[in-house]
Amino acid sequence: MSPENAAENESAAGHSSPVGGPPAARRRAWIGLAAFASALLIVLVVALVWRVGEGFPRAVDATGTANGTGSGTGTGTGTGTGTGTGTATVPPTPTKTPGATESPATVTPTQAPTANPEPGQSATAAPGQAAAPGVPRPATCTQLYTPEMIHALGDLTLNPEWSQDQDNGVAHGTDDSELRAQIDALDHLTCVWASPYGGSDTGIITNVVWVTPEQSAAVEARLVAKGLECFNQSEGRRCVIQTNTVDGAFGESHFLRNGIWLATKYTNAGPLGYTQNIIDNLWMGV
């Protein structure tokens, strides 16, 4: 039996064809059934994917930040918008990236303030920088006196503010112009005991001057030439002079020892043992 006559023989035997009509119509019917079955299959697959994946994956924007999640994993490249069935994790983009020329901020240290020197001291250098090894270096005038001597000076004030003006004439422990020039040229500490209210006829001026042996010898020679009496005292040389008038007593006392010259001028003041008190305090630990 040839294939071309199979359908007719089946009809003759009493079997009916599933679809009646001419052959062309039957072919169109089969094509329609196939299309319907394909569509149904697609719907079933979509429904299955939807159920398992809890919805279709959402689009991923151009920066790589995922807008949806899925149960699987997926990768992709490109600068456009893409889709996938997985979860994408993208690190956050910095809000500001320093430029190539940007430098970190710098902090300029603030210079430490210089402590105010005691009246009579230099603001730029501590006194005694020229002292030889082993020579006392008092940094302040208060180191020269014991509390008992300070008490004996009564109402006089140490280095009152007005006395710091060089024009007031209370900067030197001598009246001799040559010795004054020596004091100004050498490393020294000046201590003034005077009235806190201004100049008066009562006060004491002492310069602690650091000298070399040659300078010390020259100072003593000048003192002798000016009529001061010199003698040995406390391992050094002491030179003194005093004048008494109806207005009171005034004079000078100088002491030279081991690189130090104590030049003191006084007017109606000077407790007993003033110079010796300074000597004892300066060389106490030497």
Rank of each mutant, 00 (worst) to 15 (best):
A217N: 12
V208N: 02
L179R: 07
G173Q: 04
V219N: 04
A218C: 08
T202V: 15
E252W: 06
N258Q: 14
T212R: 02
D201A: 11
R238Q: 09
P213D: 12
S177F: 04
Y197H: 15
Q166W: 06
L186F: 11
D184I: 09
D247Y: 14
T174M: 05
R222C: 07
T212I: 00
N168P: 00
T245W: 02
N207D: 15
T206L: 09
D187T: 12
G248L: 08
E178A: 15
D187M: 11
A218R: 12
D247R: 07
T212V: 01
W193C: 08
T206M: 03
Y197W: 13
V240Q: 06
Q233S: 08
N258F: 04
Q242P: 01
L186R: 14
D187Q: 07
D176L: 09
W261P: 03
T243N: 03
E178R: 13
C191K: 05
L223C: 07
G251F: 14
L186T: 12
A194W: 07
L189P: 07
W193D: 08
Q166N: 14
S195D: 15
V224G: 06
D176T: 13
D175C: 01
N168E: 13
S253T: 15
Y197F: 13
Q242K: 10
G199F: 12
G259K: 04
Q242V: 04
T212M: 01
D187I: 12
W210M: 11
D167W: 13
E252G: 08
L256T: 05
N232Y: 02
L186D: 14
G248V: 06
N207E: 08
D201Q: 13
T202E: 10
Q215W: 09
V209W: 11
V208M: 05
N258M: 02
V240Y: 05
H172P: 03
Q242G: 02
D167L: 11
A225M: 02
G236V: 03
Q233T: 06
S234Y: 08
W261R: 03
L262C: 11
I260R: 01
Q215D: 08
G199A: 14
P213S: 06
G173I: 06
I205H: 10
F250I: 00
V240G: 00
L228I: 09
H172S: 12
E178G: 13
Y197I: 10
C230P: 01
R180I: 08
S195L: 08
S177C: 01
T245H: 05
V240N: 03
Q215V: 12
I241H: 00
V219H: 00
T206A: 04
T212Q: 01
P196G: 15
Q233A: 10
L186I: 02
V219C: 00
V211K: 02
H188C: 03
G251K: 10
Q166P: 15
S234W: 07
V209I: 15
L223Q: 06
G173R: 07
A185T: 13
R222D: 13
L189H: 07
V219M: 00
V246K: 02
T190C: 10
L262D: 07
A218L: 12
P213N: 09
